[in-house]
């Protein structure tokens, strides 16, 4: 287990949803530090500036869909192997398939209760923070 918290960029245009994610991670007492990126056009800038190790990405970001953001992350040599976990309100199988095809490392539907948010945060950090080797 690393002593430094893992820096995660949360790309999410809905402030309520970001607050729920934040609450979830707090409740799970995960060793993470969250950075909120509220719009697509700030993604690259924040990835560079915040040196995040993992990205949590919402798929519905207004005009620029999360899918486009994912593709542009993958198209950038610096972030081509950065772990990206999609957190989406859509359980549409087409979106799921497209998400993986665009290079998502995991696809998760947004939870419907706070307990499920905490569960997600625990599972996320158990794998990505405690188990996985990050590139």
């Amino acid at each position: 287990m690393s002593l430094e918290p893992v820096r995660i960029l949360v790309i999410e245009d809905d402030p309520i949803d970001f607050s729920l994610v934040k609450k979830g991670f707090e409740g799970a007492e995960a060793q993470v530090e969250l950075f909120h990126c509220p719009s697509a056009d700030r993604v690259m800038e924040m990835l560079e500036a915040r040196a995040c190790r993992i990205v949590l990405l919402d798929l519905s970001l207004g005009r620029d869909t999360g899918m486009d953001v994912l593709r542009s992350i993958r198209a950038d040599k610096r972030f081509a192997i950065l772990p990206v976990v999609v957190l989406s309100s859509s359980s549409n199988h087409r979106d799921i398939a497209e998400g993986y095809a665009a290079g998502a490392n995991a696809y998760v539907e947004k939870p419907l209760t706070m307990e499920l948010y905490r569960q997600f945060a625990r599972a996320f950090s158990a794998f990505w923070v405690d188990v996985a080797q990050l590139g």
Partner: peptide
């Protein structure tokens, strides 16, 4: 979803 989470 928000209604569900907040009522929860």
């Amino acid at each position: 979803r928000h209604i569900s989470v907040f009522s929860d």
